[in-house]
Write a protein that binds this DNA or RNA. Structure first.
Length: 587
DNA sequence: AACAGTCGCGCG
DNA sequence: AAAGCGCGCGACTGTT
């Protein structure tokens, strides 16, 4: 059962905000009701308690426009249909001719911008969510419940007419469930010990500097670099200045990149020269590291993103072309390893950090049906599994490191280097897996679109791309066209695997959430929540007494997710779990 | 002064 | 150790 809810367009300025709810039963009669915003959470609670046995999909324009308000009012829903997110999936899917999927959006659903203040209120008052206080000047008319109902209808019809409706509707449900999870993660936040973070900053950078000033330790390093390069007043923050100064000092490097500086040191003709090079490169690299900490996760970041010892990750569900999540503001998905010390559990609480091992190669094994790769994927270390097979068959892929390099090369489309050279041996051992990725690449090189297991479609190249392929009048133009074609091929090659891995992860988290909501410990509902997500890793936070049960839930959900996608297949999806009081200890 | 492009680095 | 894929962000830089 679907219940569509939407705010009614306001006419009078002082009238209380009205919301409409329309019940949708396929083939049945829709019933319509109206509420003030204050009544809405109670209505939702009531409907859910009256219909415990059936799934109610709360349907709205976009989860992040509606759900935060409900969470603030203490209501969380089991399931939803996010029209915006599903619309985006269907729109792209309909651009691929082979899908033969007709879909015309009934309404334009614009993702609302974050409110201008963008910081979470330090003490969000129930019913006073800032999302609803920002006037929508740019987008004055949000769709009515009736319009959303039409859109839902169009989406459900499109899904039903798709080549694999079961898979696509699973994707719609998983994506929507992901939106609920993302909103909840932002609502609850993850524990972030501000004083741990601050003392780390003080220890590495010195005391907090005045605005627009360099911290003491950075200033000291800048002086050392300046002196050793013989470049007074050098500003190491500017790659251009730094590069010039390095070249003036006789360093034969083409950029200031870390790996290039390191390889320059490696190439020293003798030990004495090596020491000389290290003497200048070491402070430069140290400066870069600390500079990064200062600008990306320093005091300003703490001020902006951490309140009441909580960090509120701002996720964007499915914003990567492959369906992976992105993060907007706060860098939720780029928390450096060094900074994770600040993620500290409070008394009696535990972090459960779960990492799914080598998801993408396992997805490749499942999608391609490659039996040898499925055998390698048994157990917890797929790369070791490959090396074992390599050893037994006298292949050069007999070491774990070679196996890992060639595996990534096969999925990313490597052509040169160690990885490229080993690919023929990979093909010999895992012909079906290799064929699968090469087929995906070939489609991309022609300008075609590929799909994930559940039916997310890759975007087509733009018209400029096709023009470049068509207008190959010179050798130079032909070379350029080939380069672009190969690049598109690498994209589609990776898309199917990365995109399906993202679907697996959505199902994994969705299953975890479902069980956290429904299971009980000694008769009490669980207090543990999902608080963080990073592509193939999730973090749960809750009372210590619940960790045993939650560990089992996380592990079993990984296998459930695999079965939701692929049915009964002989590919394992093992998860490594660390229960800890500190995120930095998890890896 | 505002904007887009590039660099370099953080994460998977 | 990068390479081969997917991202976001902050700072600098050149252009308008």
């Amino acid at each position: 059962m679907y219940i569509v809810i939407a705010p009614r367009p306001a006419h009078g300025t002082n009238a209380p905000e009205q919301w409409d709810a329309i019940t949708y039963v396929p083939g049945g009669q829709g019933t319509e009701r109206s509420f003030t915003r204050e009544q809405l959470p109670e209505f939702i609670k009531l409907v859910m308690s009256k219909n415990r046995s059936q799934i109610i999909r709360w349907t709205w324009d976009h989860t992040k426009n509606v759900y935060p308000m409900l969470l603030d009012a203490g209501v969380s829903v089991a399931s939803c249909h996010d029209l915006f997110l599903v619309q985006r999936i269907l729109r792209t899917a309909a651009t691929r001719a082979q899908n033969k999927l007709s879909y015309t959006p009934q309404v334009v659903l614009a993702a609302s911008e974050e409110p201008a203040g963008h910081l979470l209120p330090s003490a969000p008052a129930p019913g006073q969510d800032s999302l609803f206080e920002t006037p929508d000047e740019n987008n004055d008319q949000s769709p009515t419940a009736r319009e959303l109902m039409d859109e839902l209808h169009a989406q459900l019809q499109a899904i039903a007419s798709a080549p694999a409706p079961g898979r696509l509707s699973l994707l719609a449900a998983a994506e929507s469930q992901g939106a609920l999870i993302a909103a909840e993660m932002k609502h609850w936040g993850m524990p972030w010990n501000k004083s741990v973070h601050e003392s780390m900053l003080a220890q590495k950078l010195g005391p907090r500097p005045a605005a627009y000033e360099r911290p003491y330790e950075l200033q000291k390093l800048a002086a050392v670099i300046s002196q050793r390069l013989g470049a007074p007043n050098l500003n190491p923050d500017s790659p251009a200045h730094l590069l010039k100064a390095m070249q003036n000092a006789g360093m034969r490097v083409g950029s200031t990149r870390k790996w290039e500086l390191l390889s320059w040191v490696e190439q020293a003709p003798h030990q004495e020269e090596r020491y000389r090079r290290e003497e200048i490169v070491t402070p430069i690299l140290e400066y870069k590291k600390l500079y990064r900490l200062f600008t990306a996760n320093g005091w300003a970041w703490l001020d902006a993103w951490v309140h009441n010892d909580r960090f509120y990750p701002a996720y964007e569900v499915g914003t990567a072309a492959t369906g992976r999540w992105g993060a907007h503001g706060g860098g939720a998905m780029q928390i450096p390893k060094d900074v994770r010390h600040a993620v500290q559990a409070e008394d009696g609480m535990r972090l459960i950090v779960a990492d799914a091992a080598q998801v993408e190669p396992r997805i490749l094994a499942a999608m391609s049906g490659d039996r040898a790769l499925a055998i390698a994927a048994r157990g917890t270390d797929l790369y070791a599994g490959i090396a074992e097979i390599g050893e037994r068959t006298g292949s050069p892929l007999a070491s774990r490191s070679a196996a890992k390099i060639v595996m990534l090369g096969a999925m990313y489309g490597a052509t040169t280097g160690d990885s490229g050279k080993l690919l023929p041996h990979f093909r010999k051992l895992f012909p079906q897996a290799m064929q699968f990725t090469e087929d995906a690449a070939a489609i991309g090189e022609r300008g075609g679109q590929v799909i994930t297991h559940l039916g997310r479609t890759s975007p087509a190249p733009d018209t400029a791309w096709f023009e470049t392929q068509r207008d190959v009048f010179t050798a130079e133009a032909e070379r350029r066209a080939k380069t672009l074609a190969r690049s598109q091929g690498r994209f589609t090659r990776n898309f199917v695997v990365q995109g399906t891995a993202a679907e697996w992860a959505l199902c994994w988290m969705g299953q975890i959430r479902k069980r956290l909501r429904s299971e009980k410990l000694f008769g009490f509902p669980l207090k543990t929540h999902l608080v963080y997500f990073l592509h193939d890793e999730v973090m749960l936070y809750g009372p210590e007494r619940e960790t045993k049960l939650c560990e089992r839930i996380v592990k079993e959900s990984a296998e459930t997710a695999a079965r939701m996608l692929f049915g009964e297949i002989p590919v394992d999806f093992p998860v490594s779990i660390v229960v800890t009081d500190n995120y930095a200890k998890a890896k």
